[in-house]
């Protein structure tokens, strides 16, 4: 059987809210090491990769590997019934066709359980090579959210260029043009307020703003976001979820004809 208990149920709620617009369905692959998900959007332009470690849960048991096919809008409907302070336990028998979600209030005086019907999903996994990136930028996740939201109101695509001057986001549209540059800045005392640019070589790539804006739905999960860029490769937008694991979004670049 599979059983996973997380005291901060709100994390699970935020995670599903971050994913559900981007991917309609996907497999929760559970094993003794934790829970993983790899899912592409319907147009195969972006991919969500989620990895939650077994030791990040208060309790984790998985007797045999399973792929649990989840419809995220449906999971979201159930998780909306959980309180923000609730502890959430996920449970499934081996080869089950349902996932049980149990919500316990913090003072244990309210306990509810919901069964989510599982789906059979043929998922296509992509091999993502571990690699060095030309530029890795850590910045406050709220800053990333603001930049992509602001630029989405001006244009459809953004040119992201990383140089030793900083990281520049540029767009243009019917109303005009916009440029936002962030400089390497380690002045703030709190690490989560710093902008750290680790540059191996200058790089510039163009992306659809709609997706980058969608990734920012993960902002409530983490104070810092990391962007990784290499010429002619998808960008990685990564949020570390405390000690529990990470969610990474990959977006294919726009390519010149």
């Amino acid at each position: 059987m599979f059983e996973a208990r997380i005291t901060q149920g709100a994390v699970l709620k935020k995670l599903v809210e971050a994913l559900k617009e981007l991917v309609t369905e996907g497999n929760f692959d559970v094993s003794s090491t934790g829970l993983q998900l790899q899912a592409m959007d319907s147009s195969h332009v972006c991919l969500v990769s989620l990895a939650l470690r077994e030791d990040g849960f208060e309790h984790f048991r998985c007797d045999r590997n399973m792929a649990m096919g989840i419809h995220f809008q449906n999971l979201s409907k159930i998780l909306k019934c959980a309180g923000n302070e609730d502890t959430i336990t996920l449970k499934a028998e081996d080869n089950a066709d349902q996932l049980t979600l149990m919500f316990e209030s913090s003072n244990q005086d309210r306990i509810s359980d919901f069964d989510l019907k599982l789906m059979s999903i043929e998922s296509e996994h992509l091999g993502i090579p571990d690699q060095e990136y030309s530029a890795e930028i850590k910045m406050p996740s709220s800053e990333y959210q603001r930049i992509v939201r602001d630029l989405t109101s001006i244009g459809d695509t953004v040119l992201i260029s990383a140089t030793k001057e900083g990281i520049k986001f540029s767009t243009s549209g019917d109303v005009g043009t916009a440029n936002v540059t962030l400089r390497h800045n380690t002045t703030p005392e709190k690490p989560e307020e710093q902008t750290i640019i680790d540059l191996k070589e200058p790089v510039a790539l163009t992306f659809a703003l709609r997706y980058l804006n969608n990734f920012a739905k993960a902002t409530p999960l983490a104070p810092v976001v990391k962007l990784s860029l290499t010429k002619d490769l998808p960008i990685v937008v990564e949020y570390q979820i405390g000690e529990l694991g990470a969610v990474k979004f990959y977006l294919a670049p726009k390519i010149d004809d």
Binding site: H44, V45, L126, T157, Y250, A252
Partner: peptide, 14 residues
């Protein structure tokens, strides 16, 4: 005008 790349052009299917 730039075309939107698809992930399969960058990553291999397993």
């Amino acid at each position: 005008k730039a075309n939107q790349g698809r992930l399969e052009s960058f990553f291999t299917s397993l």
